[in-house]
């Protein structure tokens, strides 16, 4: 059994444990390569089905191709697609592109706050009608108690300290220093009322593993990841005002795998195109403590 197969087995096992233990389970889908591999692994775990809702936080600044791709796959794979958005902040133009907030504040409002409220069910959610392909107001406002997330340990410092099943307090706080032990495939599946658990099936995967798996399984990905002839491609996807492509000639999955293997990118952080990480020293760690995924 090769390494990729081992990773798949472990992730599938985690999915099934999550499904058995959390009544209100949902999965975050950012449309990026990691959470799309995550979605594929869910279909592996449940034999082609995805028996829980996918949650997407729409900042309204996502690259349009990402939204098209999301809705196309949702229809094709019959996903329960739930979308949340911080409409108030958008209406008040409290955003970075509007010049009324710095990048971190913009992330806090459009992503973190929108995510917290959507998970808690305190904000209106929209769910795709698979008959019409249109979004309708979600009748359920139940809070999610288990949230599956595509974080990888190798992505960035703070994520390497994660557990597979990681508790979040009422305020979505994450106590990095005092986490419960996790061993022998036994996870934290008990939680106090009001708290929830984040589940990380991709924790052991590297960026290279993700691309190798996309190749092996032939998983559809957004074309933004590939060089379309201008010598640039996106390595990590986000909102267009804060995400920039990297210099790379890779036109397809094979070329990306080659690029990663040769170590050409090994001294450049994967999220280097994500501008919010660069602000206030440890942008992502403070966002994550706060409930960012």
């Amino acid at each position: 059994m090769d390494h990729l197969q081992q990773l798949e087995n472990k992730s599938v096992h985690i999915f099934r444990e999550a499904y058995a233990n959390f009544k209100n389970l949902g999965m975050l889908w950012s449309i990026g390569k990691d959470s799309t591999v995550l979605l594929w692994l869910a279909r592996k775990a449940f034999f082609g089905h995805v028996p829980f809702p996918l949650i997407h936080i729409d900042t309204s600044y996502k690259i349009p191709e990402m939204i098209e791709y999301r809705d196309r796959l949702a229809l094709e794979w019959k996903l329960t697609m739930v979308v949340g958005q911080n409409k108030e902040a958008l209406a008040a133009k409290q955003t970075f592109p509007n010049g009324n907030a710095d990048r971190i504040t913009c992330c806090r409002l459009l992503k973190t706050q929108a995510l917290k409220d959507t998970l808690a069910g305190t904000r209106e959610r929209y769910v795709m009608n698979l008959e019409t392909g249109q979004y309708e107001v979600d009748k359920s406002s139940e809070a999610f108690t288990g949230v599956i997330v595509g974080a990888r340990a190798d992505e960035e410092g703070s994520r390497s300290k994660e557990r597979y099943f990681s508790a979040r307090s009422k305020d979505n706080d994450w106590d990095v220093a005092d986490q419960p032990p996790e061993f022998w495939n036994q996870f934290k599946t008990d939680f106090a009322p009001g708290t929830h658990v984040r589940i990380h099936p991709l924790l052991d995967w590297t960026e290279l593993n993700i691309w190798e798996y996309i190749k092996r399984e032939n998983i559809p990905t957004v074309s933004l990841y590939y060089n379309q002839g201008n010598g640039k491609r996106y390595r990590s996807l986000g909102c267009w005002p804060c995400t920039s492509p990297i210099e790379s000639a890779s036109r397809n999955v094979d070329e990306i795998i080659q690029e990663l293997k040769t170590g050409k990118l090994s001294n450049i952080a994967e999220r280097s195109g994500r501008e919010q990480d660069k602000e206030d020293g440890g942008g992502l760690e403070s966002l994550r403590r706060d409930g960012y995924m």
Binding site: R16, E17, Y19, A20, F46, F47, H49, P51
Partner: peptide, 20 residues
């Protein structure tokens, strides 16, 4: 056994015993 799955919603009649 992690679960016994039957996802009838989309006409799948398989009853699958799942586990590692």
């Amino acid at each position: 056994v992690q679960g016994v799955y039957k996802f009838t919603r989309f006409g799948d009649d398989r009853r699958i015993v799942a586990g590692t």
